[in-house]
Write a protein that binds this DNA or RNA. Structure first.
Lengths: 218, 218
DNA sequence: AGTTCCATGTCGCGG
DNA sequence: CCGCGACGTGGAACT
């Protein structure tokens, strides 16, 4: 990783056009050529960047980074205050725990929390427009379940698309939808209920408790 | 901005839990306290971070960053390879040109490019599921317009939601939809046309020309 | 503070 | 390489 601290201005042209007036910033060049320009301000993301693959041309006082899609990042360097480079080696990568996959597993093992008599048919049931998180069955017929950490309008749209296709399958019909999330936004709830989709807010932490060995002692 | 290159492992606990095994990485601390951990790999984003406001406690070989929402970032430092700091001052900020707001303005001033006899009723017309970019009128009745830089399937879904609600308003009905973008993806076009939504590809650069003072001389 | 939607979203996975 | 969906999405604008 190469680090350059410089007084610079930056222009990006591609998906849109941006201009960054002259100031002191950090320019980061990663091992694969990824370039990022960071200010000292309150931002996690860089102000400008160019992902890999790209080509970096260093002229006198000017860097030009281009990629194959017609995007161009131009960095004008007025004064380089500092420059260094480090060999960091391959990164082992980030391990995540508690994402949607895990929530799906928790609920799949306890589908009865979604309603009396609920039974799991299968997880990740495929449809032409993508896989349904859970396909279940209860006294009303087939139940398609979409699980989210946060219940947003997009999730309702997603479930709606699944229902549209599942409903055409005579072996499954009738199919109703259940939208499950830790927190369901008002607009998402409005849209869901308008389409006859049930909304269930679930406390995943509580669910995890049920799943835990501690409770299994009883 | 403070830069630390160190052999470290990182743990985050908050919205989920993550673990980052021991390796050499760059730790960036911005002026307002924002902390970010970058690997040398193919990533623009940091692997872990903690935005502002937060509190950083530096113990011997361990940094603990917490915020008011119960999130915690723990960085264990095994060896600090390098450390430095720079005063960068306030950043003038990024100027953007060509984002959706601007496109909307350009089209709002020239709604006739969307069809003969088209008239603008209002921009950002509110519905229960969000604001319609443009609400227009022509000989066919009311026209709801969704404007995107890139015409993706999400945009069609969005417009469909608006139409669903607008169509129920007796004062507006009948309402048809128009999906406008510089480039409309085949799948988005397919879905749109399946739902009776018109697709219009517009050259925003050309539109900007029309809008420019140069042409106004004529 | 809460909610909405945009974003050069980014990123990872599967076809 | 493209499409799809999750993301600690982040960030801004507006209520």
């Amino acid at each position: 990783m190469r680090l350059v601290v410089a007084d610079c201005s930056v222009d990006y042209s591609g998906r849109l056009d941006t201009h960054l007036p002259r100031a002191t910033r950090l320019i980061m060049v990663k091992a694969d050529g990824t370039v990022a320009v960071h200010a000292d301000g309150s931002r996690v993301q860089p102000l400008n960047w160019m992902g890999t693959p790209n080509q970096l041309i260093e002229e006198d006082g000017r860097w030009i980074v281009t990629n194959g899609k017609g995007e161009r990042l131009t960095i004008d360097l007025y004064q380089v205050l500092y420059e260094t480079a480090f060999e960091m080696g391959e990164d082992p990568g980030l391990q995540k725990d508690g994402v949607e996959t895990e929530l799906q597993r928790l609920i799949a093992e306890r589908v009865e929390v979604l309603g009396p008599g609920m039974e799991l048919i299968r997880r990740e049931h495929p449809t032409p427009v993508g896989p349904v998180d859970l396909l279940c069955r209860d006294s009303s017929g087939t139940v398609a379940v979409e699980i989210k950490r946060r219940g947003d309008i997009d999730g309702v749209e997603q479930l709606t698309r699944y229902l549209e296709f599942l409903g055409r399958d005579e072996r499954l019909a009738p199919v109703r939808g259940v939208f499950v999330a830790q927190l369901i936004k008002p607009q998402a709830r409005l849209l869901a209920e308008d389409r006859g989709i049930d909304c269930i807010e679930l406390d995943y932490d509580g669910l995890r408790e049920i799943d835990s060995p501690i409770l299994k002692l009883f």
